[in-house]
Simulated scan of single mutants.
Amino acid sequence: MYKNILYLINFLRNKGIMKFFLSFFLFGLFYVFTSDTLYKSTITLYPAGELSENTNILSQLSEFTETFGVNVPTKSNYYIPDIIDSYSLKNKIVKKEWDSRKFTNKTNLVDYWEIKDYSFLEKIITYLKLNFNNNFFDKDLYDLNKAIKKLDKLISVNEAYSGLIEVEVLFEEPQLSADIANYISQYVINFVNKEQKIFARKTKKFTEERFKIAENELIHSEDELTNFRKEHPLINDTPELQLLRLRLARNVEVNQEVYITLRNQLEIAKIEESKERLFINILDKAYPSVKKEHPKTFLLLFIFSFLGFLTGSLYYLVLNNARKK
Protein backbone atom coordinates (compact mmCIF):
# COMPACT_ATOMS: atom_id res chain seq x y z
CA MET A 1 0.00 0.00 0.00
CA TYR A 2 2.79 2.40 0.99
CA LYS A 3 4.70 1.55 -2.20
CA ASN A 4 1.64 2.26 -4.31
CA ILE A 5 1.22 5.69 -2.72
CA LEU A 6 4.88 6.53 -3.33
CA TYR A 7 4.57 5.34 -6.92
CA LEU A 8 1.51 7.55 -7.43
CA ILE A 9 3.30 10.58 -5.95
CA ASN A 10 6.32 10.06 -8.18
CA PHE A 11 4.00 9.49 -11.10
CA LEU A 12 2.22 12.81 -10.56
CA ARG A 13 5.48 14.68 -9.96
CA ASN A 14 6.90 13.49 -13.24
CA LYS A 15 7.99 16.48 -15.33
CA GLY A 16 6.96 14.86 -18.60
CA ILE A 17 3.38 14.51 -17.42
CA MET A 18 3.31 18.09 -16.18
CA LYS A 19 4.67 19.33 -19.51
CA PHE A 20 1.90 17.59 -21.41
CA PHE A 21 -0.67 18.77 -18.90
CA LEU A 22 0.45 22.40 -19.10
CA SER A 23 0.81 22.28 -22.89
CA PHE A 24 -2.74 21.05 -23.39
CA PHE A 25 -4.06 23.44 -20.75
CA LEU A 26 -2.39 26.43 -22.42
CA PHE A 27 -3.65 25.29 -25.82
CA GLY A 28 -7.18 25.09 -24.42
CA LEU A 29 -6.75 28.53 -22.89
CA PHE A 30 -5.59 29.89 -26.24
CA TYR A 31 -8.60 28.34 -27.99
CA VAL A 32 -11.02 29.81 -25.44
CA PHE A 33 -9.65 33.33 -25.84
CA THR A 34 -9.32 33.25 -29.64
CA SER A 35 -12.62 31.57 -30.59
CA ASP A 36 -15.73 33.65 -31.23
CA THR A 37 -18.04 34.24 -28.29
CA LEU A 38 -21.52 33.12 -29.32
CA TYR A 39 -24.92 33.65 -27.74
CA LYS A 40 -27.88 31.37 -28.33
CA SER A 41 -31.47 32.35 -29.02
CA THR A 42 -34.26 29.82 -29.45
CA ILE A 43 -37.71 29.85 -31.04
CA THR A 44 -40.31 27.09 -31.00
CA LEU A 45 -42.92 26.62 -33.71
CA TYR A 46 -45.91 24.33 -33.89
CA PRO A 47 -48.25 23.63 -36.84
CA ALA A 48 -51.68 25.03 -35.97
CA GLY A 49 -54.95 23.14 -36.34
CA GLU A 50 -55.87 25.36 -39.28
CA LEU A 51 -53.16 23.70 -41.33
CA SER A 52 -54.71 20.23 -41.14
CA GLU A 53 -58.23 21.61 -41.58
CA ASN A 54 -57.22 23.46 -44.71
CA THR A 55 -55.54 20.34 -46.08
CA ASN A 56 -58.72 18.30 -45.50
CA ILE A 57 -60.90 20.82 -47.34
CA LEU A 58 -58.49 21.00 -50.25
CA SER A 59 -58.35 17.19 -50.31
CA GLN A 60 -62.10 17.13 -50.87
CA LEU A 61 -61.64 19.50 -53.78
CA SER A 62 -58.85 17.28 -55.08
CA GLU A 63 -61.15 14.24 -55.17
CA PHE A 64 -63.58 16.28 -57.20
CA THR A 65 -60.98 17.56 -59.68
CA GLU A 66 -59.57 14.07 -60.15
CA THR A 67 -62.92 12.99 -61.61
CA PHE A 68 -62.02 15.24 -64.56
CA GLY A 69 -58.60 13.68 -64.92
CA VAL A 70 -56.73 16.64 -63.42
CA ASN A 71 -54.56 16.42 -60.33
CA VAL A 72 -54.46 19.62 -58.31
CA PRO A 73 -51.91 19.50 -55.45
CA THR A 74 -53.65 19.95 -52.12
CA LYS A 75 -51.19 18.65 -49.57
CA SER A 76 -48.48 20.88 -48.22
CA ASN A 77 -45.51 20.50 -50.52
CA TYR A 78 -43.15 21.74 -47.85
CA TYR A 79 -41.51 20.54 -44.67
CA ILE A 80 -40.85 23.27 -42.10
CA PRO A 81 -37.28 22.18 -41.18
CA ASP A 82 -36.49 22.19 -44.90
CA ILE A 83 -37.74 25.77 -45.16
CA ILE A 84 -35.41 26.80 -42.34
CA ASP A 85 -32.49 24.91 -43.91
CA SER A 86 -33.19 26.38 -47.33
CA TYR A 87 -30.65 28.42 -49.26
CA SER A 88 -33.24 31.10 -50.04
CA LEU A 89 -33.90 31.86 -46.36
CA LYS A 90 -30.21 32.04 -45.49
CA ASN A 91 -29.62 34.16 -48.56
CA LYS A 92 -32.21 36.66 -47.30
CA ILE A 93 -30.73 36.64 -43.79
CA VAL A 94 -27.23 37.33 -45.09
CA LYS A 95 -28.38 40.12 -47.42
CA LYS A 96 -30.67 41.77 -44.89
CA GLU A 97 -29.22 44.76 -43.08
CA TRP A 98 -29.22 44.34 -39.31
CA ASP A 99 -28.75 46.61 -36.32
CA SER A 100 -25.63 45.68 -34.37
CA ARG A 101 -23.26 46.95 -31.72
CA LYS A 102 -20.31 46.39 -34.00
CA PHE A 103 -21.37 49.01 -36.54
CA THR A 104 -23.16 52.33 -36.19
CA ASN A 105 -25.26 51.84 -39.32
CA LYS A 106 -27.23 48.79 -40.34
CA THR A 107 -25.13 46.23 -42.15
CA ASN A 108 -25.50 42.87 -43.86
CA LEU A 109 -23.71 39.79 -42.60
CA VAL A 110 -21.09 39.80 -45.36
CA ASP A 111 -19.86 43.15 -44.08
CA TYR A 112 -20.50 42.25 -40.44
CA TRP A 113 -18.18 39.26 -40.65
CA GLU A 114 -15.76 41.27 -42.81
CA ILE A 115 -15.71 38.46 -45.33
CA LYS A 116 -14.43 40.77 -48.05
CA ASP A 117 -11.27 41.36 -46.01
CA TYR A 118 -9.36 38.39 -47.40
CA SER A 119 -6.34 36.81 -45.83
CA PHE A 120 -3.12 36.68 -47.84
CA LEU A 121 -3.83 33.14 -49.04
CA GLU A 122 -7.42 34.02 -50.00
CA LYS A 123 -6.18 37.03 -51.95
CA ILE A 124 -3.92 34.77 -54.00
CA ILE A 125 -6.73 32.26 -54.63
CA THR A 126 -9.16 35.03 -55.59
CA TYR A 127 -6.61 36.62 -57.91
CA LEU A 128 -6.02 33.31 -59.69
CA LYS A 129 -9.74 32.67 -60.07
CA LEU A 130 -10.39 36.15 -61.41
CA ASN A 131 -7.60 35.97 -63.97
CA PHE A 132 -7.74 32.34 -65.08
CA ASN A 133 -11.42 31.58 -64.60
CA ASN A 134 -12.96 35.00 -65.12
CA ASN A 135 -15.85 33.71 -67.21
CA PHE A 136 -17.32 31.84 -64.27
CA PHE A 137 -15.97 33.37 -61.06
CA ASP A 138 -18.16 35.98 -59.40
CA LYS A 139 -16.45 37.61 -56.44
CA ASP A 140 -19.67 38.94 -54.87
CA LEU A 141 -21.35 35.55 -55.20
CA TYR A 142 -18.26 33.91 -53.71
CA ASP A 143 -18.47 36.23 -50.68
CA LEU A 144 -22.21 35.64 -50.36
CA ASN A 145 -21.87 31.85 -50.40
CA LYS A 146 -19.05 32.05 -47.89
CA ALA A 147 -21.31 34.00 -45.52
CA ILE A 148 -24.18 31.56 -46.09
CA LYS A 149 -21.93 28.60 -45.22
CA LYS A 150 -20.88 30.33 -42.02
CA LEU A 151 -24.49 31.11 -41.13
CA ASP A 152 -25.50 27.52 -41.86
CA LYS A 153 -23.22 26.32 -39.05
CA LEU A 154 -24.88 28.75 -36.61
CA ILE A 155 -28.48 27.62 -37.20
CA SER A 156 -29.82 24.27 -36.04
CA VAL A 157 -33.32 22.79 -36.30
CA ASN A 158 -34.78 20.03 -34.14
CA GLU A 159 -38.19 18.44 -34.58
CA ALA A 160 -39.84 16.58 -31.72
CA TYR A 161 -42.06 13.54 -32.22
CA SER A 162 -45.06 15.70 -31.28
CA GLY A 163 -44.34 18.02 -34.22
CA LEU A 164 -42.81 20.79 -32.13
CA ILE A 165 -39.99 22.49 -34.03
CA GLU A 166 -37.15 24.15 -32.15
CA VAL A 167 -34.77 26.51 -33.92
CA GLU A 168 -31.51 27.59 -32.30
CA VAL A 169 -29.41 30.49 -33.56
CA LEU A 170 -25.88 31.21 -32.39
CA PHE A 171 -24.38 34.62 -32.99
CA GLU A 172 -21.74 37.01 -31.71
CA GLU A 173 -24.30 39.47 -30.30
CA PRO A 174 -27.25 38.47 -28.08
CA GLN A 175 -29.72 40.90 -29.64
CA LEU A 176 -28.70 40.04 -33.19
CA SER A 177 -29.04 36.35 -32.40
CA ALA A 178 -32.62 36.96 -31.20
CA ASP A 179 -33.42 39.17 -34.20
CA ILE A 180 -32.30 36.50 -36.66
CA ALA A 181 -34.27 33.79 -34.84
CA ASN A 182 -37.45 35.90 -34.87
CA TYR A 183 -36.89 36.72 -38.54
CA ILE A 184 -36.77 32.99 -39.28
CA SER A 185 -40.09 32.38 -37.53
CA GLN A 186 -41.79 35.18 -39.45
CA TYR A 187 -40.31 33.94 -42.72
CA VAL A 188 -41.72 30.44 -42.10
CA ILE A 189 -45.18 31.85 -41.32
CA ASN A 190 -45.21 34.02 -44.45
CA PHE A 191 -43.95 31.16 -46.60
CA VAL A 192 -46.60 28.71 -45.37
CA ASN A 193 -49.40 31.26 -45.77
CA LYS A 194 -48.24 32.04 -49.30
CA GLU A 195 -48.05 28.36 -50.26
CA GLN A 196 -51.50 27.62 -48.90
CA LYS A 197 -52.96 30.54 -50.84
CA ILE A 198 -51.27 29.26 -53.99
CA PHE A 199 -52.89 25.84 -53.45
CA ALA A 200 -56.31 27.43 -52.98
CA ARG A 201 -55.80 29.73 -55.98
CA LYS A 202 -54.89 26.82 -58.26
CA THR A 203 -57.97 24.92 -57.18
CA LYS A 204 -60.20 27.95 -57.67
CA LYS A 205 -58.77 28.63 -61.12
CA PHE A 206 -59.32 25.06 -62.24
CA THR A 207 -62.86 25.01 -60.81
CA GLU A 208 -63.69 28.30 -62.56
CA GLU A 209 -62.53 26.87 -65.88
CA ARG A 210 -64.57 23.71 -65.40
CA PHE A 211 -67.57 25.76 -64.26
CA LYS A 212 -67.55 27.84 -67.47
CA ILE A 213 -67.31 24.69 -69.58
CA ALA A 214 -70.14 23.06 -67.62
CA GLU A 215 -72.27 26.19 -67.98
CA ASN A 216 -71.80 26.21 -71.76
CA GLU A 217 -72.52 22.48 -71.99
CA LEU A 218 -75.69 22.92 -69.95
CA ILE A 219 -76.88 25.79 -72.14
CA HIS A 220 -76.09 23.78 -75.27
CA SER A 221 -77.94 20.68 -74.04
CA GLU A 222 -80.94 22.80 -72.99
CA ASP A 223 -81.04 24.44 -76.43
CA GLU A 224 -80.88 21.04 -78.11
CA LEU A 225 -83.79 19.75 -76.01
CA THR A 226 -85.84 22.91 -76.62
CA ASN A 227 -85.31 22.79 -80.39
CA PHE A 228 -86.15 19.09 -80.45
CA ARG A 229 -89.43 19.72 -78.61
CA LYS A 230 -90.33 22.49 -81.04
CA GLU A 231 -89.65 20.32 -84.06
CA HIS A 232 -91.18 17.14 -82.63
CA PRO A 233 -94.29 17.68 -80.48
CA LEU A 234 -95.27 14.85 -78.16
CA ILE A 235 -98.35 14.09 -80.24
CA ASN A 236 -96.15 13.03 -83.16
CA ASP A 237 -93.76 10.87 -81.09
CA THR A 238 -92.49 7.59 -82.43
CA PRO A 239 -90.41 5.08 -80.44
CA GLU A 240 -87.24 6.46 -82.04
CA LEU A 241 -88.20 10.06 -81.20
CA GLN A 242 -89.09 9.08 -77.63
CA LEU A 243 -85.67 7.49 -77.18
CA LEU A 244 -83.93 10.57 -78.56
CA ARG A 245 -86.05 12.83 -76.35
CA LEU A 246 -85.03 10.81 -73.28
CA ARG A 247 -81.36 11.05 -74.22
CA LEU A 248 -81.55 14.81 -74.63
CA ALA A 249 -83.40 15.19 -71.32
CA ARG A 250 -80.82 12.97 -69.62
CA ASN A 251 -77.99 15.12 -71.01
CA VAL A 252 -79.65 18.21 -69.54
CA GLU A 253 -80.07 16.50 -66.18
CA VAL A 254 -76.45 15.30 -66.04
CA ASN A 255 -75.08 18.67 -67.14
CA GLN A 256 -77.26 20.39 -64.58
CA GLU A 257 -75.89 18.20 -61.78
CA VAL A 258 -72.30 18.90 -62.88
CA TYR A 259 -73.10 22.62 -63.08
CA ILE A 260 -74.56 22.71 -59.55
CA THR A 261 -71.67 20.68 -58.12
CA LEU A 262 -69.08 22.92 -59.75
CA ARG A 263 -70.86 26.03 -58.58
CA ASN A 264 -70.79 24.78 -54.98
CA GLN A 265 -67.13 23.80 -55.25
CA LEU A 266 -66.28 27.17 -56.76
CA GLU A 267 -67.84 28.97 -53.80
CA ILE A 268 -65.85 26.79 -51.39
CA ALA A 269 -62.64 27.48 -53.32
CA LYS A 270 -63.31 31.24 -53.24
CA ILE A 271 -63.87 31.14 -49.49
CA GLU A 272 -60.69 29.12 -48.94
CA GLU A 273 -58.66 31.57 -51.00
CA SER A 274 -59.96 34.64 -49.19
CA LYS A 275 -59.69 33.23 -45.66
CA GLU A 276 -56.98 34.46 -43.33
CA ARG A 277 -55.83 31.36 -41.50
CA LEU A 278 -53.34 30.60 -38.76
CA PHE A 279 -51.14 27.77 -40.01
CA ILE A 280 -48.11 28.10 -37.72
CA ASN A 281 -48.09 28.92 -34.02
CA ILE A 282 -45.09 30.65 -32.48
CA LEU A 283 -44.96 29.14 -29.02
CA ASP A 284 -41.78 30.90 -27.91
CA LYS A 285 -40.23 34.01 -29.37
CA ALA A 286 -36.49 34.55 -29.20
CA TYR A 287 -35.01 36.86 -26.59
CA PRO A 288 -31.42 38.04 -26.13
CA SER A 289 -29.42 35.64 -24.01
CA VAL A 290 -27.58 36.93 -20.95
CA LYS A 291 -25.21 33.96 -20.90
CA LYS A 292 -22.76 33.00 -23.62
CA GLU A 293 -23.22 29.62 -25.23
CA HIS A 294 -19.78 29.22 -26.78
CA PRO A 295 -17.05 28.68 -25.81
CA LYS A 296 -17.82 26.81 -22.58
CA THR A 297 -14.64 27.90 -20.80
CA PHE A 298 -14.52 25.55 -17.80
CA LEU A 299 -15.66 22.51 -19.74
CA LEU A 300 -13.10 23.06 -22.49
CA LEU A 301 -10.28 23.67 -20.02
CA PHE A 302 -11.22 20.51 -18.16
CA ILE A 303 -11.27 18.46 -21.37
CA PHE A 304 -7.94 19.83 -22.58
CA SER A 305 -6.38 19.33 -19.14
CA PHE A 306 -7.66 15.78 -18.96
CA LEU A 307 -6.33 15.03 -22.45
CA GLY A 308 -2.97 16.51 -21.46
CA PHE A 309 -2.82 14.41 -18.30
CA LEU A 310 -3.89 11.28 -20.22
CA THR A 311 -1.34 11.84 -22.99
CA GLY A 312 1.42 12.56 -20.46
CA SER A 313 0.51 9.45 -18.47
CA LEU A 314 0.65 7.24 -21.54
CA TYR A 315 3.96 8.79 -22.50
CA TYR A 316 5.34 8.16 -18.99
CA LEU A 317 4.18 4.53 -18.95
CA VAL A 318 5.60 3.78 -22.39
CA LEU A 319 8.90 5.49 -21.55
CA ASN A 320 9.12 3.75 -18.16
CA ASN A 321 8.52 0.32 -19.71
CA ALA A 322 11.12 1.01 -22.38
CA ARG A 323 13.73 1.87 -19.74
CA LYS A 324 13.03 -1.33 -17.80
CA LYS A 325 13.68 -3.39 -20.89
Rank of each mutant, 00 (worst) to 15 (best):
V70H: 04
I184Q: 01
I43P: 02
E172R: 02
R210A: 10
Y46C: 04
L241A: 05
S289L: 06
V94D: 09
I57M: 14
K19L: 14
L262P: 05
K292C: 01
K75Y: 01
F136P: 01
Y79I: 11
G49K: 13
E293T: 06
S100F: 01
Y112S: 02
T107N: 07
K123C: 02
L248S: 08
L12Y: 09
N133R: 06
F302N: 07
L244S: 14
S313C: 11
I43F: 01
K296P: 07
P81N: 08
S289V: 12
N216K: 15
E215G: 12
V94Y: 07
I124H: 06
S76G: 09
Y79G: 04
L128N: 08
L26C: 13
H232D: 00
K325C: 00
E114T: 08
I155Q: 04
K90M: 12
D117P: 03
L241N: 04
P239D: 00
Q265M: 13
W113L: 05
K325R: 13
L164D: 13
L300R: 03
P239H: 00
E168Y: 06
A181P: 07
H232N: 15
N227M: 00
T44A: 04
K96S: 15
F309N: 06
F191H: 14
F171H: 06
L128K: 09
K285L: 09
Y39A: 07
G69P: 11
L176P: 07
I213V: 14
I155M: 05
F211V: 03
F228A: 02
Y39R: 05
T42L: 01
A200I: 01
Y142M: 07
E63V: 11
D237F: 10
S156K: 10
I219K: 15
E273I: 11
I165P: 11
V110L: 03
E267A: 15
T42M: 02
L317I: 15
P295R: 01
V258D: 04
K123N: 14
N10E: 10
I180D: 02
K90E: 08
W98L: 02
K150S: 13
F136S: 15
Y142N: 13
N182T: 13
R323V: 14
K275C: 02
